[in-house]
């Protein structure tokens, strides 16, 4: 019972509500929701890294790698969503494990930029590969789910539930992990690495574990995105601006709560969607402006709104 706290209950309620809502949602709402879950998962990985004081400006690397790994499997005839998403997740995880040996030695802006450099290399490789459609990318056919082959709207409905279940498991898992000793080490590494090492833990190993995790969930997000959109291409999957968007979402969400990343991703999608609709030529202005506003006026992210509310409730009346 000690594992059940407010966050777990909140996440479970959200999960159940969304699960049921899936059958009633307008298609475009579900689609935005699906994207938010995928991007939110990537941001969750970044959040875990951020708790150790590290920010990556290159997680489009794992996002794109997972997306392309899943999409390439469809080219050779595999269409099962479980297999595709598992493969995408695993591929990104393995890549993160390998690069982790190098990256775990770096901190601060160097860490951020090295990640970005690696993501640009992936971008270059994809652009150069004509067999994979270069900058045009290629289409990903509709997935099947353990033999069930939905048609029409059912595709997105099923995919939404599929994604929801997995993100729920991942998110609750992360939350519980954070409460373990190794998980709690994050903040310690962020605050003072050398003291952590004097306590007998390896800061580099702590970072490596988080890094692989962040790679795994980014690959997961990428694979889901590939299936949801039905298309992969380097500009929207592996470019540095995509990495920037993930950091944007992470900061939007704040460090406070694992569930916040999904709300952050949703808010991001909504800002972008409405900016596109109402200011077709100046949507970047609105996106950038909102980001600046959040950085200036909501330094701890959207979650701090909730915390503030709670605090003001508790405040004794004079």
């Amino acid at each position: 019972m000690r594992y059940i706290d407010k966050t777990v209950v909140g996440l479970t309620i959200a999960f159940l509500v969304l699960f049921i809502a899936d059958f009633f949602m307008a298609e475009w709402v579900r689609f935005i929701g699906l994207q938010s879950l995928a991007r939110g998962a990537v941001a969750l990985g970044l959040l875990v890294l951020w708790r150790t004081g590290l920010v990556s400006f290159g997680h489009a690397l794992y996002f794109g790698f997972g997306a392309y790994a899943a999409a390439m499997l469809t080219l050779i005839g595999y269409h099962d969503a479980f297999l595709l998403v598992f493969a995408g997740t695993l591929a990104a995880g393995v890549l993160a494990y390998l690069l982790g040996f190098l990256l775990r030695r770096y901190r601060a802006i160097f860490f951020a930029l090295l990640n970005m450099a690696f993501s640009m290399i992936l971008y270059g490789v994809i652009v150069k590969t004509e067999e994979l459609g270069s900058t045009d990318g290629f289409s990903v056919l509709t997935p099947t789910f353990l033999g069930y082959a939905p048609q029409g709207e059912a595709v997105q409905t099923t995919l939404f539930i599929f994604t929801l279940v997995f993100t729920y498991i991942i998110t609750v898992g992360v939350h519980l992990y954070m409460k373990t000793t190794l998980g709690g080490m994050s903040m310690a590494v962020r605050e003072n690495e050398i003291r952590v090492e004097y306590l007998g833990y390896s800061a580099e190993k702590v970072i490596h574990v988080k890094y692989v995790f962040s790679g795994l969930v980014a690959g997961f997000g990428g694979a889901i995105m590939a299936l949801a959109i039905g298309q992969v291409d380097p500009d929207s999957m592996a470019n540095w601006t995509v990495s920037g968007e993930f950091v944007f979402i992470t900061i939007l969400s704040g460090i406070g709560n694992v569930g916040a990343t999904y709300i952050g991703a949703l808010v991001f999608e909504l800002i972008r969607t409405y900016a596109f609709e109402y200011a077709p030529q100046f949507w970047q202005f609105i996106l950038g402006g909102s980001l600046l506003a959040i950085i200036m006026f909501l330094p701890d992210g959207i979650w701090s709104l909730f915390s503030r509310l709670r605090r003001s409730e508790k405040a004794p009346s004079p």
Binding site: F31, D136, S236, F276, P280, Q281
Partner: peptide
């Protein structure tokens, strides 16, 4: 409804769905 095509295929697919289902 004239709007921007920038941002890559994935973003445009999302926008396509928005336009169809929302507008």
């Amino acid at each position: 409804l004239i709007y921007d095509e920038s941002g890559g295929g994935v973003k445009q697919v999302a926008e396509f769905r928005n336009k169809v289902q929302k507008q």
